[in-house]
Design a protein around this nucleic acid. Sequence first.
DNA 1: CTGTATACTTACCTGCAAGTAAGTAGGAAA
DNA 2: TTTCCTACTTACTTGCAGGTAAGTATACAG
Lengths: 192, 192
Amino acid sequence: MTTASNTREKIIDQAFKLMLQRGLNGFSYRDISEPLGVKNAAIHYHFPNKMDLIAALIDENHQVLKKTTSEFMAYGGPARPQLEGLFAFTMNQCQCGRPICMVGALAIDYDDLSDDVKDANDRFMKDSIKWLSKVLETGREREEFTFEGCAERKSLSILATIQGARQMARVHGMDILESMFEQIRTDLGIKD
Amino acid sequence: MTTASNTREKIIDQAFKLMLQRGLNGFSYRDISEPLGVKNAAIHYHFPNKMDLIAALIDENHQVLKKTTSEFMAYGGPARPQLEGLFAFTMNQCQCGRPICMVGALAIDYDDLSDDVKDANDRFMKDSIKWLSKVLETGREREEFTFEGCAERKSLSILATIQGARQMARVHGMDILESMFEQIRTDLGIKD
DNA sequence: CTGTATACTTACCTGCAAGTAAGTAGGAAA
DNA sequence: TTTCCTACTTACTTGCAGGTAAGTATACAG
């Protein structure tokens, strides 16, 4: 079959959504297979066990963000649009039914994760921190942002804030997300 | 039996720990009953179903934090020790095998929650925000802290940061927690 | 037109999760 | 001393979870 029966991609899409809505232990194979009109065994065919699936989801997540951040990067020099790109990406994810982020979803089930998955997650976080650190550093040099201390630490704290905010938004509504972005801007000395 | 067979409290203790390690869907009745040397049905006796248990856990969490914050309050005027109390409390929780916070644990399983549990969680968050807002406002008036914008928004962002940081700490080790506290201090203009 | 690889389905298995109903041990009250 | 209440245990039930083995439809290669 060279026919593009994109079942694999559909499974990843559906599982990705479920993962970011309910976490690793919050969904089952049935929750994936039923809406897709396939059988559970079809999932096992593509991903022998659940950890294989999760590993694929982390890769997917990594690639999506990489693609998106490379779009921010295309803006060129200014740091501000890149930061705004991160906010927009976050907001967009939440609006697309992905209220929590991958790192947050995995943190809770951390003990269950295979080493492969842990490593993939770790790489993803390191990549994110690296990217944001650079944005912040650039922004400070260009005098777009003002903040005290080390850029890496600051970037970690911003990522932590966004991660926490996404979870809080679930309880308090999405409005607080924009409010948190505004606070991050304020803390970076951005006035507009 | 007036004898203090504190099974109920033991169940809450164990479930509380499990909840903050693995989340709502990450532990079973067996994980509670086995280490306690009782049967699953003993849990059902005290908490007819899982939501009743969870509701009790939120109450427990609320009371623990209330007790702890009232101890901070006893410091009297200065805001700084109260903020430090929050940091110490967080650090202590993590060191006692409770890596993630209740709000974070529930956010992932939010769709599963009963209305009662959602309400309890909501009250808890509102209480926390109220307390921290007051601390921040006091601190700003006393010129212990400097920050721009509304105290409530700032308090929300600090709570979000701590929540996110606890989850990240799971991946990157507990050291980043102290580092995040330091960043929060820096962002509040605290130098020492 | 035969063989082989891909992408599944059918039909199963094991195990555990939550939950229930009925029984029981041991005070406390009458 | 019986009776009742509390705090359980024993012995189930139902249902779904993840996972497997064997069969099948289709395409393409030679």
